[in-house]
Amino acid sequence: MSDKRLIGVYKANRGIVGEIAYVLGHLVGARECNLCDITHSPIKKKSEFKKLEKQLLTEFGIEFRLVHMNERTDKELAASAGREPCVLLEHEDGSLSMFLDYLELKACDGRVSSFENLVRSRLDFFV
C-alpha cells in the first residue's frame, strides 16, 4: 500500500456562510470551482466520484481527501494558495506537490470520467 495521498482543494470555504456564498456566486456566474463540478451534483457527491475514490484506494492504495480553502493545513495552504481549485499529491515523506492545476480541472468540464482519465495517466508517473 502506498503512503501517498491526493488532496483536492476546493475554491470555496466550508460552513453555511461559505456554502451560501459559493452557491449564490455560482448562480450569477461570479464564482466557479471546477473541482466542485467534478465531485458534486447540485445536491450531493456524485456516485461516479465515490466509485473513483474507492478504486484509487483499492488499486493504488491512495486515499483521496477533499478540503475547502478554510480547512487546509499550513502545509496544504503553502502548496496551493492562489492556485485553487487544484489537486495536491502528498508524498511518502510528507512533502506536497501540485498534481493537477485549475486549468487541467477546467478541461474536465465537470466530467468524472475525464478527471479519472487524467488522474490515472498522471499516477503512472508517480506510483
Rank of each mutant, 00 (worst) to 15 (best):
L118P: 05
L100Q: 03
R5C: 15
K45R: 13
V28K: 13
T73Y: 05
G61F: 13
L118S: 01
R31P: 06
L123A: 01
P42D: 10
P85S: 07
F64I: 12
F60N: 12
L6Q: 03
K45Y: 01
S121V: 02
Y10K: 06
R111K: 15
K75L: 14
E84W: 15
L89Y: 04
V28P: 03
L77N: 07
L77A: 07
Y102P: 00
V17I: 15
L100K: 08
R72I: 03
S97N: 08
L105G: 05
R120T: 01
F99G: 03
E32I: 06
A30S: 14
E19G: 02
A78N: 12
N34Q: 03
C36H: 07
S80T: 08
A78L: 11
L35H: 04
G82V: 08
E53F: 03
E116L: 00
K4N: 13
G110L: 05
I62H: 02
S2H: 08
V23T: 12
D101P: 04
A30L: 15
C108M: 03
L96Y: 14
S41F: 07
V127Q: 08
E59S: 02
N34V: 01
S2A: 11
N70H: 07
K50V: 00
N34R: 01
K11P: 00
V87N: 02
L89E: 10
